[in-house]
Nucleic acid binder design. Sequence first.
DNA 1: CCCTGATTCGC
DNA 2: GCGAATCAGG
Length: 223
Amino acid sequence: MSWTEERIERLKAMWTEGSTASQIADELGGVSRNAVIGKAHRLGLEARPSPVKPGEEKEKPVPAAAAPAPKAEKVERPAPRAAAPAPAPEQAAPAPAAAAPTRSPQRPANPDLQYRSIGPGGFVRQGPGDQQAPIPPAPPRRLVPAKPSPEVADKTSLLELNDRICKWPMGHPGEPDFHFCGAPSNPGFPYCVQHCGVAYQAQLPRRDRRPPPPLPFGGPRVR
DNA sequence: CCCTGATTCGC
DNA sequence: GCGAATCAGG
């Protein structure tokens, strides 16, 4: 296979849209993942978060300053790449938090292309044009299970589970106050609306993901 | 092991 | 220009 105009276009589109090299490769067919990456680089497309090169390391404030340990290793690393902007330090809440559409890790979605949750399990693709003015306010609200008594209050035990109540685990199994959410479940789902929002992400199985709206015609003029 | 992207280098 | 081989982190 050769890099025809169309195939290059497709590569560009998918690459900038965030597809992985593998996906692009077997979408195009006839090329390997490496071929795609190689081509992408030759095209000048890059600046994509690499699992290997997440970004330049920042100087961390060492109090008493131990030996900085100057790396005397491979000295040749041009790395003209600008440091990728550190993604907002999303706090990883251990407890199921608000049902905000959590983005898939390792894949900082294209800022021009976001997924907006319209309900548990349901997401709507949002193109550059449809950008909503008001960004989710990201309220510091935190949904805490109303636990009257910290301990043996009205915990939902394993025995009380049925298809109508939320089975979202609270705490850790084995711990004294481990229990389940117990709120009315979202019909058809094992969890309540809140936890459905946490449990179901926009991310589709890799194979089924498609750069859906087959690029209008002229392709996106993004960037 | 699987995955990822980056880089190298012979063709 | 191409892409397999290789590297290196997750």
